[in-house]
Every structure is written in structure tokens, then in C-alpha cells.
């Protein structure tokens, strides 16, 4: 999978997050803002890297503004943002 444009999903409401992904030329650039960064910042980073690895995404710039979302919320927002950014239209 390749990131060819910008995709964004989520909200800034409590227990949610907004994820913006866009193309990058230098591998993965992951920027995390989180209300629980001290406690879960590393975990969120691992979660995202793992997701990209599984999808075979190498070059991507990601910004997450997390408001305490659970893993499956983060993953679904991530999936949605990545689908938009990879040019996938159907069903969105």
C-alpha cells in the first residue's frame, strides 16, 4: 500500500483521536500528541508502526492527536485515514 495523498479521520472528542496521514519521502515520520502521552505514548507509536508494517507502508508522515482513545479506536481511525490517503474511494 502506498500513501499518495492526505487522509484524515477522527475527532478531538474525549476517548477519540484524529489521525492525519500524508506522503513522505523519508520513511515513517510519526508525530504523537496525546493526553496520555506519558503513560501510552510509546505504546501508541508501536501500534502505528506495526499497522504500517502489516500494510507494507514505508513512506508516510503521520500526526495523531489522541484524546485517550482505546487501541481499537486508534486502529479504526488509522485504517480510515490510510484508505483515504491511498486513493481508496469506494464505501467511504
Amino acid at each position: 500500500m502506498e500513501i499518495i495523498n492526505t487522509g484524515q479521520a477522527g475527532t478531538v472528542e474525549s476517548s477519540d483521536c484524529i489521525i492525519t496521514v500524508s506522503p513522505s519521502e523519508n520513511g515513517m515520520e510519526i508525530n504523537i500528541e496525546s493526553t496520555v502521552k506519558l503513560q501510552f505514548g510509546d505504546h501508541i507509536r508501536d501500534l502505528i508502526i506495526d499497522f504500517f508494517n502489516k500494510k507494507g507502508i514505508v513512506n508516510v508522515s503521520l500526526f495523531i492527536n489522541d484524546r485517550g482513545a482505546l487501541d481499537y479506536v486508534i486502529l479504526s481511525r488509522l485504517e480510515s485515514a490510510v484508505l483515504q490517503a491511498s486513493g481508496y474511494k469506494e464505501g467511504l
Partner: peptide, 15 residues
């Protein structure tokens, strides 16, 4: 948390 809701809404409109 209406402010969270409003900001989210406006961001989605801008997006």
C-alpha cells in the same frame, strides 16, 4: 464537552 464536539465538527467541514 460541546467544545470538543464543535471543534471536531468544524475540522471535518474544513477537511
Amino acid at each position: 464537552q460541546l467544545i470538543d464536539y464543535l471543534v471536531s465538527h468544524l475540522i471535518s467541514v474544513a477537511k
